[in-house]
Amino acid sequence: MLRPDRLWPALIAGALAVVAGGCGKGAERVQRGAGTTAPEYVVRDSAQVRRQVQYQDQLALAGRDLQAGNLESAEKRARAALKIDGSAPDAWGLLAGVADRRGQVAQSGELFRKAADMAPERGDVLNNYGAWLCQHGRPAESLAWLDRAIAAPGYATPEVAQANAGSCALDAGQSVRAERDLRAALVRMPANPVALEAMAQLSLQRGQYLEARAFAERRLSAAPATRSVLQLASQIEARLGDQAAADRYLQRIGKEFPQDAGS
Rank of each mutant, 00 (worst) to 15 (best):
A131S: 13
T226P: 00
L186A: 04
S228W: 03
P193N: 04
E159A: 12
Q162S: 09
A200F: 02
A223H: 06
T157V: 12
N127V: 07
M118Y: 02
V160Q: 13
Y209T: 10
W132I: 02
V187M: 03
Q205P: 03
M199E: 14
Q135I: 11
E121N: 13
G137T: 07
S221R: 15
R213M: 08
L182C: 08
C168G: 09
A116E: 08
G166W: 06
L170F: 14
D171F: 03
A165H: 05
A191E: 14
A225C: 01
A169L: 11
Q205M: 14
S175T: 14
D124L: 00
L133M: 09
L230A: 00
C134Q: 10
S203Y: 01
L133C: 04
Y155P: 05
G173N: 12
Y129C: 10
L186H: 05
V187L: 09
A140L: 13
L170I: 11
A140T: 11
L230I: 01
A216F: 06
A140P: 02
S228I: 02
R227V: 10
T226E: 05
L196A: 02
Y129F: 15
G123V: 05
R218H: 13
L220Y: 04
Q208E: 15
H136E: 08
L202D: 04
N192I: 00
G166H: 11
V194M: 00
P193R: 01
G173Y: 11
C168Y: 10
C168P: 09
A152G: 08
A165M: 04
T226M: 00
E121C: 00
A156G: 09
A214F: 10
A152T: 07
L170V: 12
A212Y: 03
R180L: 11
P193H: 01
A149N: 05
Q231R: 13
A223F: 04
A195Y: 01
V176K: 12
A191Q: 13
L182I: 07
C134M: 08
R183D: 13
S175W: 08
A163E: 07
V194W: 00
R138W: 04
R218V: 04
D117W: 03
E197K: 08
S142G: 13
N164Q: 10
Y129Q: 12
P158S: 01
A214Q: 15
D117F: 05
E141Q: 15
M118L: 12
R122P: 02
Q162Y: 03
S221M: 14
R227I: 06
G207T: 09
Q174W: 08
D147M: 03
G173A: 07
G130C: 09
C134E: 09
C168S: 12
A191L: 02
G207R: 11
A152N: 09
N128M: 14
R183N: 12
A185R: 03
Q205D: 15
L186V: 02
D124F: 00
Y209L: 08
